[in-house]
Design a binder for these strands. Structure first.
Lengths: 222, 222
DNA sequence: TTTTATCGACCGACCGTCGGTCTAATAAAA
DNA sequence: TTTTATTAGACCGACGGTCGGTCGATAAAA
C-alpha cells in the first residue's frame, strides 16, 4: 500500500533512520538499502529527497550540530553573564545534545566512522569557533583570561578534545582517560591563561558514564 | 607476456602506486583497478600480496610512518644531546619524510581522505608519543621544560598540528595559516613551559612552500 | 457535478562499477 | 620432471545511483 506524507516529515524520517544507522554501524557500512528498509520506502523515494548517500550524511551532521550551535549563540548573546559562566553553559549545552547519541554507542564500538567524525569536527570548529572566540575575548577584557591568540587556542582545544576523547578512535583505558581529562583541564587553564581550578567543572562534565562513582562536583568555581 | 619479480619488489611497487593514488585521489575514490592499471598487474596478483584494499592502506600508512619513527628513535637515543635539540631534530625528521608527498598534492585538493588521515594520525600518536614524552621528561630534568603532563601535552600538540595544518580539511587562506602557525608556536612554548622564542624554528619549518619569501631563519636558538 | 489536467510523492526493475574470489596457466625452484 | 610460487583475468554478489512510470490529491474547466 502506498503511504504519502508531507515533504518535511518524510525527509526527517529518512534523516532519523540514517542517523541511527550511521551511528550504530558506521557510515560506510550502512547501505542505502538499509535506510530504505528502516524507513519502509523504495529507492526512488530516497533519491527524490536526497541526491546521494553522502548528502544524507551532510544533512545528518548539520542537523546534529545546529542544536548545539544555536544554544551557544543564545548563551553568548546574554548581556549580563560573565565570560567564564558563558563558557561553562555553552560547553554544557554541547554535551547534552549528544544525549540521544549515548544510547546508541553503548552497544557497539563505533568503528569506521572516520568520514562522519571528520565532517562533524570540521563543522563544529567552523561554527563554534567564532562564538567561543568572542566569549574568550570578553573574558580577556573582564580579566579572567589572558592569551594573545584566543581564536587559535579555541580551535586547538576543540580539535584536541573531540579527537582525543572520542570513544573508539584510540582505545584508552579508564584510568588513562581520567588522566587525560585531568591533563586537559590543566592545559585549558594554561593556554587560556585562566586561574588554576577555574575549569574544574570540566572534570565532572567530561567523565564518561562509567566513571562517575564519586560525584562530589556540583560547584564550578567560575 | 608474463613478468615475474621478487616478492618484496612487487609488493613495494603496489605500495608505491597505492600511496600515490590514495594521496592524489583519496582512498575511497581510488579503485583497486586503478592500482592494477598503474602497476601493470592483474587482480589475482594484487590479492596475492594483500588480502584487501584496506590492508594496502594500512601498509601504506605504516611504511610512511615507520620512516619518521625510526629516525625519531635513533635521535632520541643519542646520549650527548640536550632535549630541545633532540626535539628539533625529531620534528625536522618528520617533516622531511613527507617531501615526496608534496609533489603530489600540488595539483588537486586532497578531499575524501578522512579514513587514511585518521589512521595515519592514530598511528603517529601511538608510536611517536612515547618517544617524545621521554624527550620532554629529559628536558624537564634539564630545566628546559616544565609541565606536569608531558605525555598528554605531546598528544594534544600532535593531534592539533596534524589536523589544523593538514591541507584540504579546512580551507585556510595563506594569511590565516601563517597566523595559526605563529599561534601554534606560542601554544607549544606555553604548554611545555619553555622559554619564549625557544621554538621559533618551528615558524620556518612549518611554513608551506608558498610562503617562504623571507628566509632569515637558520639559527634556532635551542 | 463531472471531467480533465497538473503536480509531486512514490515505486522497483534496472544499470554500471566496485571489492573480492576462483581456477587455470606459467615461470622458477627442486 | 615435479613442485611451488606467482601471475592472469573471467567471474560474482553487492553496492550506489538512474529511470520510466504509477498513484492520489487538488483544482480548474466542462
Amino acid at each position: 500500500m502506498r503511504i504519502s506524507k508531507p515533504h518535511d516529515e518524510r525527509r526527517n524520517e529518512i534523516l532519523d533512520a540514517a542517523e541511527m544507522l550511521f551511528t550504530m554501524k558506521g557510515y560506510s557500512k550502512t547501505t542505502v538499502n538499509d535506510i530504505l528498509k528502516e524507513v519502509g520506502i523504495a529507492k526512488g523515494t530516497f533519491y527524490h529527497y536526497f541526491q546521494s548517500k553522502e548528502e544524507v550524511m551532510d544533512a545528518v551532521v548539520q542537523r546534529f550540530i545546529d542544536i548545539g550551535v544555536n544554544m551557544a549563540k543564545s548563551i553568548a548573546a546574554k548581556p549580563d553573564l560573565k565570560a567564564p559562566e558563558k563558557l561553562f553553559q555553552i560547553l554544557m549545552a554541547q554535551r547534552t545534545d549528544s544525549g540521544r547519541k549515548e544510547g546508541m554507542i553503548e552497544e557497539l564500538h563505533e568503528a569506521n566512522n572516520a568520514e562522519m567524525h571528520q565532517k562533524s569536527l570540521v563543522e563544529t570548529i567552523q561554527q563554534l569557533t567564532p562564538i567561543l572566540t568572542k566569549v574568550i575575548e570578553q573574558g580577556i577584557t573582564e580579566g579572567y583570561f589572558s592569551t594573545p591568540y584566543p581564536k587559535e587556542t579555541i580551535e586547538m582545544l576543540l580539535v584536541s578534545s573531540q579527537f582525543l576523547f572520542d570513544e573508539g578512535i584510540f582505545g584508552w583505558q579508564s584510568d588513562e582517560l581520567l588522566q587525560k581529562v585531568v591533563a586537559f583541564v590543566y592545559i585549558v587553564e594554561t593556554t587560556l591563561g585562566a586561574e588554576k581550578g577555574s575549569f574544574h567543572y570540566l572534570l565532572e562534565m567530561m567523565k564518561p558514564s562509567n566513571m562517575t562513582e564519586d560525584g562530589e562536583g556540583e560547584n564550578h568555581s567560575l
